[in-house]
Design a protein around this nucleic acid. Structure first.
Lengths: 246, 246
DNA sequence: ACTACACCTTGACCAAAATCAATTATCACA
DNA sequence: TGTGATAATTGATTTTGGTCAAGGTGTAGT
């Protein structure tokens, strides 16, 4: 579903993407000229793991799930990304082969750019390489965190932690949080079954006194969740690691 | 426990480390001149998460555990590294603050180098930045795999998968594998309790027919484990991801 | 407004892993 | 060669989360 898109508008958007923030206007103009911006519906598969791809993607709006699955259908969600995030760029190091599958999980606008342009430019533009390196380092750290949480936190604590990471952690007083996507998907993102998620969310409510109404969650103060979830985490609240890169 | 070390010997060793393989002789000579090579005993803590450090490390021999822990002592092992691996270098992006703790888990020879030298050089040497980027990308992929395995594989399968990743996966016929470190530590590395590890290893033996003798494991053929463990993995055997970078 | 479908919840039950406790094995070192 | 200390195993039990099945809820699309 292609959508005619304006290169200069795309160029403006690319400047908001962390890896491109230090790039020259000339490069951004060039890559934008080769860009496509498409509107995809929920369910669209952008690529499947071990595919060879020629273009990588940047999310302008909506959500994209990264995952892998076994022959008998078991699926592991690797990440779920929203706007300003890049996916598939990693293929430049793997002969254009992507290591995960990508599925649009809510209607989304997605820009695609040629891998070849990026591959060439990181050799010419050291700042781009450094910004990618920084972004990759940040991402690796997020994965470490994820592994830690899966090791130390139980299901209700993991949900609490997930909620806290959706919002500005410095706000005082009453807070309202909306789940960003389906509960089924949040469950998969947190490595648990939908039934477990449902029960664990009720447990979190009982333990902390938060109020749940569909995808909306309200509380008098973040402390209610912090006390319950952050006890099983090695970081202090507010989470320092949310501040860097993006 | 310092050990007088020869800069040119260190320089030679650094060339075997993936991120330095493309570096100029001049840079390697400079950083080697500022290097220290120390012998550490099991139990030595190199640094603790959220420490500010001035030097990063390269393992010449032995094993180092990276981990984080909560106030009440729960610990999550982030990684366990051996020779040719780098640790703490990530601090260059975080104001010299390390995001994990590092403990020597078997007597080890460890080279330390000034973070400042690395921080400066990645701005001058694009090849170094690219090699670090590639290494970081490879590492992120390993973390994705780890998350996948924790989601999809059960304890005995995870042990089988761990064993397969210790060795050359293309060998045919009988194979002998030695566990690289304590079973307690392997358990922690795989995110399970020592008791669970012990029982899961017995289960793996019963299911696959491998023979276990202390830290030594023998089998007629890798297939025995492959059939059991790799069914719960999204990759084909042999594991492609082991080939790239290092 | 109706229907089909996906999403979510709940209950009953089961399986996996954690925990607690008690031995037994192994190894570094005096 | 003993002797602590640490590592490893085993058993009993509990906890947690997964699985299976049924029913409820909400909503997009006719």
């Amino acid at each position: 579903m292609t959508h005619k898109s304006n290169p200069s508008e795309i160029k403006t958007y690319l400047k908001t993407v962390s890896i491109f923030k230090g790039c020259s206007d000339a490069f951004l103009a060039k890559i934008s000229a080769n860009a496509q911006c498409q509107i995809h519906k929920k369910g669209k598969i952008l690529f499947v793991h071990d595919d060879t791809i020629e273009r990588f993607y940047i999310i302008k709006s909506g959500w994209v799930k990264l995952f892998r699955e076994t022959l008998d259908g078991a699926q592991a969600v690797v990440d779920i990304l929203d706007n300003h995030h890049v996916l598939g760029e990693i293929a430049i190091f793997e002969n254009n082969i992507v290591p995960y599958s990508a599925e649009v999980v809510s209607n989304a606008e997605i820009i695609s750019l040629p891998l070849a342009d990026l591959k060439k430019e990181i050799k010419n533009d050291n700042q781009l390489a450094l910004d990618m390196l920084k972004s990759m380092a940040y991402d690796r750290r997020r994965k470490d965190k994820e592994i830690e949480h899966r090791t130390i936190q139980n299901a209700p604590q993991r949900i609490g932690c997930f909620l806290l990471r959706l919002i500005d952690q410095n706000q005082k007083g009453p807070v309202t949080i909306h789940l960003p996507y389906d509960k089924t998907l949040v469950a998969a993102r947190l490595g648990m079954q939908p039934e477990t998620f449902s029960r664990a969310l009720s447990k979190l409510r009982d333990e902390t006194g938060i109020r749940i109404n569909g995808a909306t969650i309200e509380m008098e103060s973040l402390d209610q969740i912090v006390r319950y979830s952050c006890a099983a985490c090695s970081s202090n609240f507010p989470c320092q690691d949310l501040k860097t890169a993006s």
